[in-house]
Amino acid sequence: MPNDPTGDPNAHDVSKFADGMTGSCLCGSITVTIKDNELFSKRRGHLCHCANCRKVAGSYVASNLLIEQEKVEIEDRDGTKKTYEDRATLSGNSVFRSFCSKDGNPISSETDSYPGKIILKMGIFPRIPQPEAEGFGLHKHEWQGGHEGVETYEIKWAGPEKKRMN
């Protein structure tokens, strides 16, 4: 057991991620590499408060990054990546939620709602870019605060259903 706390994002200077970054599941079987030089030069990603994302994250909010598939490389060294088809969605399109079957770590999601894109679960990475938006703001708990500079949308933050709350 380590003597020092683990996972301090501030121990990783963002300059190390000028061309992208790599993260992994807890057991290290699955690694995800993002090849994008704008991860930390502007706001990226979103926080999601929908029930399904909260369940996958195991928390009151999920931190996600919607990005072009060609900018992402997923390696499944031990063949532990499994996918669950989530049919209980607002759009009616299934969301294919991938995770590590050994340690349970969520990895990514894909849906026909965003062709050519993949939704990465940012908790597997050493740093998380400052989010640009949060979706399903109507589903936030009353005790949750806001995030300065992050636009909150009633339901979806991308697509025709978006309606800003702030």
Rank of each mutant, 00 (worst) to 15 (best):
G137T: 03
K81E: 12
G145P: 03
M165K: 09
G159K: 01
F136C: 10
E151W: 01
D76Q: 08
M122I: 02
T80A: 13
P5V: 13
L65E: 05
M122V: 05
P131R: 03
N52T: 14
K35P: 02
D19A: 14
S101A: 13
L90G: 05
C48S: 10
K156Y: 05
S59Q: 09
M122H: 01
T80N: 14
E73Q: 15
K35V: 11
S98C: 02
E148M: 03
V150I: 09
K55Q: 14
P126T: 04
R97Q: 13
R44E: 13
E73S: 14
G159R: 00
I67T: 07
G58Q: 10
G45C: 04
C53E: 08
C27N: 11
V32N: 06
F96S: 07
D19P: 01
A88N: 15
L47N: 15
L90Y: 08
D103Q: 01
Q69C: 11
K81F: 02
A88V: 13
P131K: 03
E75F: 12
F96R: 08
G23S: 09
A51G: 10
F40E: 05
G149E: 04
H139Y: 11
D36K: 03
E85Q: 12
P115C: 04
S41E: 12
P2I: 14
K156W: 04
K82H: 02
T89G: 02
C27K: 11
G20R: 10
V32A: 07
T111V: 03
S109R: 01
R97I: 09
I34E: 09
K162G: 00
K140G: 02
M1T: 13
G104E: 06
T83A: 08
E154A: 14
G92T: 00
E161N: 05
E38K: 15
K121E: 09
C53R: 07
F125C: 02
G45Q: 06
K156E: 14
D76M: 07
F17W: 08
D78A: 14
H139N: 14
L39K: 04
E142Q: 10
I118V: 15
P5G: 10
H49F: 13
K42T: 13
F125K: 03
I155T: 15
M1K: 12
E110R: 11
T83L: 06
Y114D: 00
K117M: 12
A62K: 02
Y114F: 15
D13V: 07
E110T: 12
H141M: 12
D103V: 02
I34Q: 04
I118C: 03
L90C: 07
S91G: 04
S109T: 06
S24D: 05
N10M: 12
R164Q: 12
A133M: 13
E154S: 11
A158C: 02
K81P: 02
N64D: 07
N93Y: 13
H12N: 14
A51P: 00
K117E: 11
H141V: 11
R77L: 11
Q144M: 15
P9R: 08
E154N: 07
I107C: 02
